[in-house]
Write a protein that binds this DNA or RNA. Structure first.
Lengths: 359, 359
DNA sequence: GCCCGGACTGTAACCGTTTCCATCCGCGTT
DNA sequence: AACGCGGATGGAAACGGTTACAGTCCGGGC
């Protein structure tokens, strides 16, 4: 019922091969022929059948995106970066979320298999090797914030350790002595790296903290609230709270206020991510800036590169630098809008070359 | 190179037709045959080629989603609702964003055409009739928050008018006399309806406001800031500011604080949407609750229904009820966590049956 | 005059499913 | 015994593109 390439061929008086060549701009075709075919194609409102095309080319011009979750501004920023970049390159984006367990990821990947030319996988709970094992080796993959140690897969990371290290140092430099930490789930790559950054900075300063100041959260608002409840019960009370993401930090500030404590006077609170809304809180949130949309964009560029090379390309491993953004919630005296400190660049290669400096 | 249905047929000793029947669970097949075919299929790790299947069936099991934007928690919640529901029904989701102009929407739609079984379009700038005109009549569409007046297309709406009306009444009931409004762009269906709700409540109360208290924003943080700048210059100063979405309300509160004003004592501030983070601000934000994820979920259910009926179904028009959520930023004395007021249900049919009550 | 090569175009074989239709068979009916 | 019927299966034609291969035509060099 729809108009096919054969209709265009018939009406224009040429063969399907020629029409196909014109429409794809390949092979030698006389100018007059080209003109005529184009004319007929538009007049018939011909639009090539996507399924047929991808059946014969085995290309879909679609990229898959697997996310652990869709709550909050963090993931919407990732998608935004991915979508913008993919669209600019003529690719479509197939999203699929809520995959926190490796088994779910495999399942989702399986249903995506013929539909995409490559996949961006963001999952702090899976490691690349096991993943790649059960996928066709020809399928390009880019891992985002995954557990480390994969040389054979493209992988992009945030400098979690450097950012957390810088933040903890910053709090120490401001004179805070008793710094509590609300992290993410154990086994989550982001969470673990941030926790290590926090610990390393304390160790460097020669400070030993009680275990009760290090709390496992889950990056949700509720975890921020729960952490405050826990911390208010311990004595001496911490004078700073470093949350592993902004959402927990924000919820924690809210809970602290409800408990009658002043931020930052009684206790400093800082976060991680710098979600867009963080600067509108009161007090404005000191945090570690991550170019979230940029991360997504970079992932797509990497993926499209891999697709072009049919996955026979040199693998890319990169770590996105982070930036300390000093605002009011840490108790530093800042001018308007806060101060950004950090390299802000993108470092590439095996090692973490992030030069996120301390405050 | 990949294993095809013919391989399964050859190895199992049956024909491709039989294998296909087994795999799709249709037609009469002997149990023994079924068992054997399944066995071979799994042992060969056969997975049907998606493109071939959809070429033959002209079904993709994919739904398209066209969004105007991806900034902020609102859209990520919509996507979350869409994704969850689609996944549960065995559908994939193709997203495409940044379509604020009708021309862009048409273009995006065109590139989606063979890739999806139906589309959810969220665009407060387009109306259904013009849209449907240039699309194949067989393509199911669900319009979200679009300009009204389409009987021939499935359309879901938020009760913008009722919510804004209730909020304005609530502020009046609290004794606020000079209520300013920051809206969205003219021509934006959501924005216009909310503005009408605001105006109608004022008219009902017999209050005439100066034009300068009604400001056109664009739903962004920057617009909230700009609105405050504008309002601080007028005299007498408003004693309440009703923003057409939470993001502007939040940014406005931040700007007001910077200007040395207290919320809600000097000026009440309220929003619209009830994005998850709204309750963690200080003061906690009084707003109009919208079940954003529910809206997305409902859209997908409607769309899948339409797909099942090959778009020959009775059209659905529904309006999602809204709820006034009274927290602290409006100056009402509330207990912990705020008070929700509203029907909370989903009303269906032509008219707006939202019973959002006043405070 | 003949051969060669390059530019252009057409024929038909794929790509991997689904599905219409034909075939075969066993069995109960008339 | 002929017949009809329904269950089980197979053959082959779609579906709508791309592309390898095979012409055809033409000008130019020998």
């Amino acid at each position: 019922m729809a108009v096919t390439i054969r209709d265009v061929a018939r009406v224009s008086g040429f063969s399907v091969a020629t029409v196909s060549r014109v429409l794809n701009g390949i092979g030698p075709v006389k100018d007059e022929t080209r003109r005529r075919v184009r004319e007929v194609a538009t007049s018939l409102r011909f639009s090539p059948n996507v399924a047929a095309r991808s059946l014969s080319t085995s290309r879909t011009h679609t990229l898959g995106v697997l996310l652990p979750d869709l709550h909050g501004e963090f993931f919407s920023e990732v998608i935004r970066g991915i979508d913008e970049t993919a669209q600019a390159q003529g690719y479509h984006v197939l999203v699929s979320s809520s995959h926190n367990a490796p088994a779910e990821i495999s399942a989702a990947l399986a249903t995506m298999l013929g539909r995409v030319d490559g996949v961006v996988i963001m999952s702090p709970v899976i490691d690349g090797r096991t993943l790649a094992a059960e996928l066709p080796p020809s399928l390009p993959i880019v891992l985002l914030n995954c557990a480390g140690g994969q040389q054979d897969v493209d992988a992009l990371d945030i400098d979690n350790h450097g950012g957390a290290f810088a933040m903890t140092r910053h709090l120490l430099a401001l004179g805070r002595q008793r710094i509590a930490f609300v992290g993410g789930p154990r086994g989550n790559a982001d969470a673990d790296a941030r926790r290590r950054g926090y610990r390393d900075a304390l160790r460097e300063a020669g400070i030993a903290q009680p275990d009760s100041w290090e709390i496992d959260g889950d990056f949700s608002e509720g975890a921020g609230i729960a952490a405050v409840e826990q911390l208010l019960a311990v004595s001496p009370r911490p004078d700073a709270l470093f949350a592993a993401n902004d959402v927990m930090a924000i919820a924690a500030m809210s809970a602290l206020r409800d408990a009658g404590l002043r931020v930052p006077d009684d206790i400093a609170v800082t976060g991680f991510d710098d979600i867009p809304i963080a600067r509108y809180f009161h007090p404005t949130l000191t945090t570690v800036r991550v170019d979230i949309a940029g991360l997504g964009a970079r992932a797509v560029r990497t993926l499209i590169h891999a697709v072009g090379w049919k996955n026979e390309h040199a693998r890319v491993q990169a770590t996105l630098a982070t930036e300390l953004v000093v605002r009011a919630s840490c108790g530093a005296r800042v001018a308007d809008g806060g101060v950004k400190v950090g390299s802000g660049g993108l470092t590439s290669g095996r090692g973490l070359e992030c030069r996120t400096p301390i405050a």
